[in-house]
């Protein structure tokens, strides 16, 4: 196993706009990277280039010292020792569960005994040992997903790729499968790349999150860091449910702003350059004092109300409340901290 390196990788499909543009990314050995972005941002193309289904138009992909692909040549997927969980699971309908799981071993020509043992181990891990002789069609969505995962387990792949594997499952199953993935990552120690558009999935599973938009990589960082210190307006608005304010900040302030620093700026627009600041909902407190806002909407979400508040100049803040203010009410809020993007 080794580090997976993408070096200035681009992909053109001949449609004018590149699907992936100059993307550089290192996935550390044994790391679990989530590629996060809205649909159409090029994240699946990146995954397919790592797998070898697409070749980069420019740049190079390495696994350690070994070249996987560049613009001139490409190692075909069958020689890359990778495994993938597809969005559609890609189970072969004409084979039993055991045959599906064991196919990579069969191709590699292992002995009959190893073949059987490894299949049993893999199916045990995903708790499907008693379904070995079933056909994929007889399984539920979650079970199919686990068969696909078991197929990745049997050979020790260098890299495991997951393409929105939870997109077709219901919410309850998702949580269970997230648990399975985390367990799988810890046990196998494989380098994993996980494509998703669901940020809570990415945050919950990955050791690193890479945010993409329109073919470009915006930021790579561990989940906590990307949440606390996002780079740029796009990442700030993609991660979490924060609100972005445009304010005239005086110079010399740190990036992390406190209420003392924010209060004068909000109260009276100071001189200085315009900056985007990100305010997380949990950093806003409804209190008797602070700045005045008008409630634009209040939505009951079960455990709390989700509020949209309007500042005097029309900018918007999102926050939560235990109580239900009426739409049109004026409430006063304090902002404990904010982050300059």
């Amino acid at each position: 196993m080794a580090k997976l390196i993408l070096n200035h990788v681009s992909k053109q499909f001949g449609t004018g706009r590149p699907a992936v543009a100059g993307l550089s990314l290192d996935v550390r050995e044994g790391g679990f990277l989530a590629l996060l972005g809205p649909s159409g941002c090029g994240k699946t193309t990146v995954l397919r280039m790592i797998a070898g289904f697409e070749a980069p138009s420019d740049g190079a992909i390495f696994l350690g010292e070994r070249l996987l692909a560049n613009a001139a040549q490409s190692l075909p997927p069958e020689r890359r020792n990778m495994a993938m969980v597809f969005q559609s699971y890609a189970l072969w309908p004409h084979m039993s569960v055991a045959d599906n799981v064991g196919y990579p071993l069969k191709v590699r020509g292992v002995s009959r005994e190893t073949y059987r043992n490894r299949i049993r181990e893999a199916l045990d891990t995903v708790r499907l040992a008693d379904h070995a002789e079933r056909r994929p069609a007889e399984l539920s969505g979650g079970q199919r997903q686990r068969v696909a995962l078991a197929r990745c387990l049997v050979t020790e792949p260098d890299v495991v790729l997951l393409d929105e594997p939870l997109a077709n499952l219901d919410r309850h199953l998702r949580q269970e499968m997230e648990e399975t993935f985390r367990e799988f990552h810890q046990r196998s120690g494989a380098t994993m790349v996980y494509v998703t558009h669901d940020q809570s999935e990415a945050m919950a599973l990955a050791t690193d999150v890479a945010v993409m938009s329109q073919g470009k990589l915006l930021q790579v960082a561990p989940p906590e860091e990307i949440y606390a210190r996002p780079e740029g307006r796009l990442v700030g608005s993609l991660i979490g449910r924060g609100s972005v304010l445009s304010l005239n900040l005086p110079g010399g302030l740190p990036r992390k702003l406190t209420w003392e620093e924010l209060r004068p700026v909000l109260a009276s627009p100071a001189l200085g350059s315009t900056a985007d600041i990100l305010v997380r909902p949990e950093d806003i407190a409804l209190s008797g004092e602070g700045i005045a806002t008008r409630v634009r909407s209040s939505l009951y979400e079960g455990e709390r109300y989700s509020l949209i508040l309007e500042l005097e100049d029309g900018q918007i803040l999102r926050t939560f409340s235990r109580h239900r203010p009426q739409v049109g009410d004026v409430v006063h809020v304090t902002i404990h901290s904010a982050w300059r993007l």
Partner: peptide
Amino acid sequence: DPALEEAARLAGAGFFR
């Protein structure tokens, strides 16, 4: 589903296989 063939490629199977 093209993924059925892609899965076989990642499993290591060549064209005739």
